[in-house]
């Protein structure tokens, strides 16, 4: 992999860290589409807790793991901004490490595949019927 691509990855990672570490504090705290749909039929109090009525969300049970980062906060950190931001930073780095690590381990190790020339060319004959096959519409 050429240096320039690593530069792009590092730059992208910085953007992700900024989004998860800082911008995440501006996120809406309203329930999302799924959650709110499951709350239809129930009333909620000012805290956002279900206070009455009948809805699918009432059947919700405890999470198996929980953990110190549950609900996108860091247990023990009282400052909301810091708690959310830190959990976001950890999440981005963890996701990058896990995904990048797994992808790196299972990657195809052909002769210079994807690294020759410039535009990510692959060895001839090795590429036919590959791109876009899930759509079944290739050529």
């Amino acid at each position: 992999m050429r240096k320039r691509s690593w530069g792009f990855v590092v730059g992208g990672l910085l953007v992700a860290l900024l989004l998860a570490g800082v911008v995440s504090n501006l996120a809406s705290s309203h329930p999302d589409g799924l959650d709110s749909s499951l709350r239809e039929g129930c009333t909620v109090d000012a805290e956002g807790e279900i206070s009455g009525g009948s809805c699918p969300a009432q059947r919700e049970t405890e999470h198996e793991v929980g953990g110190p980062l549950a609900d996108y906060g860091v247990a023990g950190v009282d400052n909301d901004l810091l708690s959310t931001g830190l959990s976001g930073v950890v999440g981005v780095l963890l996701t990058f490490a896990l995904a990048g690590g797994v992808f790196w381990l299972v990657r195809r190790r052909g002769p210079e595949a994807g690294d020759s020339a410039d535009q990510g060319s692959t060895p001839p004959g090795d590429t036919a019927d590959r791109r876009g096959t899930p759509a079944g519409t290739a050529s």
Binding site: M1, R2, S5, W6, F8, V9, G12, L13, A16, F96, A97, A99, G100, G101, F103, W104, V106, R107, R108, G110, A113, G114, D115, G120, T122, R130
Partner: peptide, 12 residues
Amino acid sequence: DLDDRLAPMAGL
């Protein structure tokens, strides 16, 4: 699809 270039990109 996963070559030396796509793997880090996919992690990102």
